[in-house]
Amino acid sequence: MEQKEVLLDVQNVSVTFGSGKNKFEAVHHVSFQVHRGETFGIVGESGSGKTTIGRSIMRIYPTSSGEILYKGQKINGKISKELDHQVTREIQMIFQDPMASLNERAKVSYIVSEGLMNVEKLTQEEYDKRVDAALQEVGLLPEFASRFPHEFSGGQRQRIGIARSLIMQPELVIADEPISALDVSIRAQVLNLLDKLQKERGLTYIFIAHDLSVMRFITDRIAVIHKGKIVELAETEELFHHPLHPYTRALLSAIPVPNPIAERGKELIVYDPSMHHYEKDQPEWCKVSDDHYILANQEELAAYRKELESH
């Protein structure tokens, strides 16, 4: 395998909320790397901390330990103003709910250009030009710029959200459940759009979702996160063919399959964390095979390896 350029390197990052008695560690010593041009998936239930990871990369939440390196530079904690500007510009986010993430009182032109105004001083005409270009790129008409968000359908609003991040000419886009609030048919359109933009602009995506069936279609690698810890990380097809961690298996078993016969005979696997015996032997982040990592203790690791070989 060729060496890929590491765009984002998350090392041992923890995120804590509150202090003292109310302290809560939402993300617990998480490490992963995102390569340039790939789509990296983070999957987990609600409350697992997947959004928190995305937001701490965006510098919305401060990290309590560990380092986040973007193009080799540390971007968490205190950083210089120039770097802050660069990060704001190059890392963008697409949000889950297109109904809630757009300012109801602002026109589309303002919504889309707002980010740009903060980093670049241009004339109004130039702003308008850029907005038109961004809107066209996501498949909307330039005249939509003078309308308000409530005049659009869910799919169109999500496109506005995408245009808003594109106008900054980002390199890394964090998409936080961008399609869970959308209809099946609209979902396909938005997924295709994201795919097209990736091909044209060489974007790197971090795709956060709970739905593994969508993830399989778009991601190159997937990290499975449970209660703030990444439990398994592998290349997408590898993960679907040889899921090792019991939690990954539980998630996979919950995917609805468009096949009534398979669905009727389906056994739901329920993940029970008490099945692990971590009292003596602490789990570690280990490599099972090429590009397949798992959180396990020595005993489990041996069992997982054996299982992989038997395939």
């Binding site: 099946v184 048919s185 979902r187 396909a188 997924l191 069936s213 969508v214 399989r216 279609f217 778009i218 995917i255 399959v257 468009p258």
Partner: peptide, 10 residues
């Protein structure tokens, strides 16, 4: 069309 747009079939 509805069945085809499922990501499971993509």
């Amino acid at each position: 069309a509805l069945l085809s747009s499922m990501p499971q079939l993509g």
